[in-house]
Amino acid sequence: MPNILLTRRDSVAVVSLNRPEVLNAMTLNMWRELASLFSGLAGDDGIRAVVLSSSGPDFCVGADVSEFDRIRENKDQSAAYEVSVDACSAAIANLAKPVIAAVSGYCLGGGCHLALACDFRFADHTAKLGIPSAKLSIVYGVKSVQRLMAIAGTVNAKRMLYSGQRYDVAGSQSMGLVDEVCNDVKTAAVEYAATLAANAPLSIAGAKFMLNGLSMGDGGLDVAAAQRIIDLAADSEDFREGRLAFAEKRAPRFRGR
């Protein structure tokens, strides 16, 4: 079986990590494959939203440490490894479509990294989130720390990174790491993704671009690019369709252009 699965539910793509026998630990090849998959979804007009999930009871225990002796033995290998990890999280975070993480069981280290790259994190009552880098003498990458701080705040980010502690779903939600707690997390995530998929793609893409940039601090937002996105939406067929649907008191039929 492949290590990453892709299924479609109408306009929602469900991407699933598929190594349940090792708690969905991420190999270097999986980081690269997942980045390629999300880059491909960017050009698929039939997909309007994505759910990032997993096979088995655990979302992702993190990077596959068993291969570190071969691929992450020194600073040069570590730097190259982080390039692949950052490229993966960037492909998720920069996808101009809503991405929802459906988290159950362990969501640790690299797994938490993946979940933080998503727009929303839904979790069930079994979820345990944490970043155990301090227990492995690993310093989390700059982009990852920026994203964690934007979501959880500086003090909570310090608490997580200094302690390496695992947090249950209540503690994770109190820090802002979890947005919704659900009994059937994958179903809830897909249902929410479907509601977002019905809205105007250009509006969501523009909002995501600006919010992601602004959340990364001074200089994080390309203002000129943001204005181009605003102008594109203002001249779009979807904007005309939205006005017409409002006047005719019907649901709009957006096409993303």
Results as ranks from 00 to 15, higher is better:
residue 45 D to P: 03
residue 153 G to S: 03
residue 155 V to G: 03
residue 103 V to Y: 01
residue 37 L to E: 07
residue 68 F to S: 05
residue 118 C to E: 06
residue 129 L to Q: 02
residue 173 Q to P: 03
residue 92 I to Y: 03
residue 117 A to P: 00
residue 105 G to Q: 03
residue 104 S to R: 15
residue 84 S to L: 02
residue 135 K to M: 05
residue 119 D to T: 01
residue 36 S to H: 11
residue 89 S to V: 15
residue 59 F to W: 00
residue 95 L to P: 07
residue 224 A to W: 08
residue 140 Y to G: 00
residue 63 A to N: 14
residue 255 R to N: 13
residue 246 F to T: 09
residue 137 S to N: 09
residue 256 G to A: 10
residue 248 E to S: 13
residue 191 E to S: 11
residue 184 D to I: 03
residue 88 C to I: 12
residue 235 D to L: 07
residue 136 L to N: 07
residue 5 L to C: 04
residue 75 K to R: 15
residue 4 I to M: 07
residue 85 V to T: 05
residue 216 M to W: 04
residue 122 F to Q: 02
residue 76 D to R: 11
residue 68 F to Q: 02
residue 160 M to T: 01
residue 111 G to M: 04
residue 248 E to D: 15
residue 228 R to D: 14
residue 193 A to Q: 10
residue 194 A to C: 12
residue 109 G to V: 00
residue 147 R to S: 03
residue 146 Q to W: 02
residue 177 L to F: 13
residue 198 A to H: 09
residue 139 V to I: 06
residue 173 Q to H: 08
residue 136 L to D: 04
residue 7 T to R: 15
residue 50 V to E: 00
residue 252 P to C: 06
residue 129 L to M: 14
residue 57 P to N: 06
residue 12 V to I: 13
residue 85 V to E: 13
residue 161 L to W: 02
residue 62 G to D: 01
residue 78 S to E: 08
residue 61 V to S: 06
residue 8 R to L: 13
residue 224 A to I: 14
residue 238 D to R: 05
residue 231 D to K: 11
residue 112 C to E: 04
residue 32 R to C: 06
residue 57 P to Y: 00
residue 254 F to D: 02
residue 69 D to Q: 11
residue 103 V to H: 01
residue 25 A to M: 12
residue 86 D to T: 12
residue 51 V to H: 00
residue 255 R to V: 15
residue 114 L to W: 09
residue 28 L to R: 15
residue 9 R to D: 13
residue 214 L to F: 08
residue 38 F to D: 13
residue 151 I to S: 07
residue 33 E to P: 01
residue 166 R to I: 03
residue 158 K to W: 02
